[in-house]
Design a protein around this nucleic acid. Structure first.
Lengths: 368, 368
DNA sequence: CCTGGTCTTGAGACCGGTTTCAACAACTAT
DNA sequence: ATAGTTGTTGAAACCGGTCTCAAGACCAGG
């Protein structure tokens, strides 16, 4: 015996048609608001629908029309407030145009991302917004396009893909962040990221373009400020909380410890906070800190953290808007949007050394 | 001219059948692994499917079978790490049984919740996991049941509803938290929540049972510790960050300021941190703090915050498991699961007054 | 009164799967 | 040789909508 609840047959358009004594086609026209229906018949159909509490079956509609009114979204980590906020931006904007959102988590894993994508395609999403887990593998993304579904890349680019991209100008953002530090006199810096060290040896060649861009900006600014290359360090591999912690404790406990850290995201900044406490260091007296993302806690802690705020919510709305635009016009030219990040100076950077040029500081404040 | 990309017809089972020179029915049997198919034919069909890169259309399957392999999840705020983690628990558990997850945000708004629910039903979810935005209105929830779709309530109950519930034992949790405070000698407490003050006047009658339970536990424990009723205050309405801030500044700046605060969630605890800084108060010297939810920042800040950790991820997995169980057996008895929260003592509580009974502390440490 | 156009409506195909049912083949038991 | 299984297959209905096409009603113009 099957113990499953028999999903009772709900009211269909055929039921409504019968109740209103018209054909299925006419009922569909009246309810769908297309074609022509006489006022009398329309009222009869609408009345019957109301009376029977008719709810159209979205699946059947999708099967017939090929459009589902659903946008698929795949991000690396829903728990991450960055993506949380971006997803809300997407949802809010999508809702404006009557789209629903189907959300999946790739856990920053390629196979999971591919599987999620397959599921979404098979569920008939009209288009996809994806924050790809890495830039190298693009076959599954190409396939989305091949199936005629538009795709928008969120926060991370896949070089060479002919698709719309909505990202943050991470290079300028990192340059800005670095200048904040060098202008305060710091000459021993370290950029800390969860990304793994690229095999190619080129630090900007990490799997995420967002991180790569930031590293570019960081190195550029360090060079421009004549920071010795060996003192513009990069610390890769702070993947899990524990790994980040171990890594940071080693870094901060070591003999060559940096005087300032650039955290690639707010999760890492939090670990910097934790690690500096563990090492008996005080921020900003012993260690200066800047991070990307204006996470809620950064302004509440002591000292409040100087951050490069990313337009996260706007990133989401822009991505949704771009996708919807392309849904309505497949021929529009491809757009690569780079939103600007903005620094929020708080109290986690300390001026060190004797004479820091204030030129850069002015330049920064100009920018704000 | 329609500028929309013509979603190219993908490979259907009919194409595969034709390529393998069998009927649609046989192809379906071979691909679906049901019925009987001769080995030779099966190989031919599978080969053709492989060659054509056939992907079954989940929508069509759902239409035919009535089951979608999808679980709908509606929470109040995806951005909130609490729900973020719970959703991951749900996703992970659901994936184990081959279910996908459709996620929606109610923004703690009833109308949005109802709309999301309608969308999900019309998209054919097999069942729903919902954190209802309030306990009073249950018509839309009843309707889910009436449509034969199982429903599991997450974190929040709707009294009187005949459904499975997975929640935290908030009453004991709050009792524990309060005891931590009273045992340290605190006699002027304040519970701060985002919920609005109930119209009935009964403080436990807030719209969220989760909060109501906590308040019950708080009042119980305060009474048991002989805290004067007027000093077991409750501060409602810290809805937005700004409102929370204003409210807390008024509370902490006032003449009757409490010596200890119980924050209803980690967002509020963060505002307590911020507000105490604004008021020039030091935690824990001037103000003790306990909060629910072991948010990541609580252990990194200074002082680290004593929290009542909720089994958030487990809440998610339990909810998914419960739903899947009921999907397989509609007749199983209704279960109301109450997971236990556990205190994590850190450094945000200071012992005050002369003689705090240590009996309760022992009791607490027994519990840990 | 006949012709042509517009309005309104119903029959039926279609989307892409699943599933029932009957037909037929091969094989076993009588 | 005949009846009864069992195994394999295809035709067609079905899920619940949309949409094309043709037919009938009705009207105005010639």
């Amino acid at each position: 015996m099957d113990k499953r609840l028999p999903a009772q047959r709900s009211v269909t358009i055929t039921d409504v048609a019968r109740a209103a004594q018209v054909s299925k086609a006419t009922a569909a026209r009246a309810l769908g608001g297309y074609g022509t229906v006489s006022a009398a018949v329309r009222d009869r159909v609408l009345g019957a629908a109301q009376r029977l509490d008719y709810r159209p079956n979205a699946l059947a509609r999708t099967m017939a029309t090929g459009r589902s009114g659903t946008i698929g979204v795949i991000v690396g980590d829903i728990e991450n407030p960055f993506f949380g906020l971006a997803v809300r931006g997407i949802s809010d904007r999508a809702k404006q145009d009557g789209f629903d959102v189907l959300l999946a988590n790739s856990a920053e894993d390629l196979a999971t991302e591919q599987a999620a994508m397959a599921v979404m395609l098979s569920k008939g999403v009209d288009g996809l917004i994806v924050a790809p887990s890495q830039k190298a593998e693009r076959r599954h993304l190409d396939e989305v396009l091949a199936r005629g579904r538009p795709l928008v890349l969120l926060d991370r680019d896949v070089p060479g893909m002919p698709v719309d991209v909505v990202e943050v100008d991470g290079r300028s953002a990192a340059r800005l962040a670095t200048e904040l530090l060098t202008a305060a006199g710091h000459r021993r810096l370290c950029y800390v990221t969860a990304s793994l060290a690229p095999e190619s040896g080129d630090p900007t060649d990490v799997v995420l373009t967002s991180v790569g861009n930031r590293i570019s900006g960081y190195l550029e600014a360090a060079k421009a400020a004549a920071v010795e290359p060996c003192h513009a360090a990069i610390c890769f591999g702070a993947v899990t909380t524990q790994e980040a912690q171990d890594l940071l404790v080693a870094l901060l406990g070591g003999p060559q410890r940096p005087s300032a850290i650039l955290a690639s995201d707010s999760k890492i900044a939090l670990e910097v906070f934790r690690a500096s406490k563990a090492c008996g260091l005080t921020i900003p007296d012993d260690l200066s800190l800047v991070t990307f993302d204006d996470a809620d806690w950064t302004s509440a802690v002591d000292p409040a953290v100087t951050v490069i705020a990313q337009p996260t919510y706007a990133l989401g709305t822009a991505a949704a808007e771009t996708l919807i635009g392309r849904l309505n016009d497949a021929d529009r030219p491809i757009r690569r949007q780079q939103l600007k990040a903005s620094p929020i100076c708080r109290a986690s950077i300390k001026r060190v050394g004797g004479l820091g040029s204030s030129a850069v500081l002015e330049q920064v404040s100009d920018h704000v």
